[in-house]
Write a protein that binds this DNA or RNA. Structure first.
Lengths: 141, 141
DNA sequence: ATCAACCCTTCCATCATGGCAAGGTCAAGG
DNA sequence: CCTTGACCTTGCCATGATGGAAGGGTTGAT
């Protein structure tokens, strides 16, 4: 039995010891065996689970998705359609977020191109942010 | 003096009452005048500041940036270069985040195209997430 | 007088992660 | 044997921006 400490598990999987304990506390991974002194010791299956989780995190999956993906991984009677559904939903979320960032980034970038960026106080960026109608007490856009 | 309640200020600016109080608590806006009963009442300048903040938030600026932008807005001796610098740095951050999301999204999207999505348990998505070398206790990628 | 709508403060939750503190354990070297 | 450093444990606090809920006070209209 190749049992390793939490530090070694961390180095083997790229998941910090802190996060390994956290995953355990939220039930994402099973509690590992402990020795008399209370130290956690991880076996190959635990290491595999942690690798799986880290790769899923690298793809931006939230914990809830990972929980489901782990269940599907262990369920030999799964259908690949279930996995694909989770993945496609996540792709859509990633793309939505990316589109949101792109919208912001493009709007701001356009403002920066018309800002002289010199010692003058006149700045189209601030003009765009400050309410233009001075008499109004409301703010439409 | 057109003084309005926090609810009215919220409706005028699109910032929730909760957030208006929060901005005050972190010093992003000045504490407004209060009546004897302790109610906050906001004037035109406050409304303008809140509009400014909301627009900056719509562009994804974090509070720290907004704090600096508000200071520059009030500083008539500012240089537009200072504003532009903040904006360009933020554009870079937005683009970096968007690129990160795009990387994830593309990798996952490619996996979904090779996943059959039927009733078979075979799934390239899970294969990509699960460690492939079964004997190893480490996880390179 | 009552009732809805509003106001106040304070605490808790998100999501994933890091940090710090206080205390226990273990292995190597003097 | 004792010290030292590296490791382990638990628990609390913080992030950033926002929402929610609890619990209590005020106002205004019916």
């Amino acid at each position: 039995m190749t049992l390793v400490t939490i530090k070694q598990a961390s180095e083997a999987t790229g998941v910090s010891p802190k996060m390994i304990r956290h995953y355990e506390s939220i039930g994402l991974i099973a509690a590992p065996t402990r020795t008399e002194n209370g130290y956690r010791y991880y076996g190959p299956d635990d290491i595999n689970s942690l690798c799986f989780i880290r790769r899923a995190r690298d793809l931006g999956f939230p914990f809830e998705d990972i929980r489901q993906l782990l269940a599907l991984l262990r369920d030999k009677r799964r259908s690949s359609a279930e996995v694909k559904q989770i993945a496609l939903r996540h792709v859509a979320e990633l793309e939505a977020k990316a589109a949101q960032l792109a919208t912001m980034s493009e709007a701001l970038k356009r403002l920066t191109t018309v800002c002289p960026g010199n010692s003058s106080p006149n700045c189209p960026i601030l003009d765009a942010l400050a309410p233009s109608q001075q008499g109004k007490l409301w703010c439409n856009s």
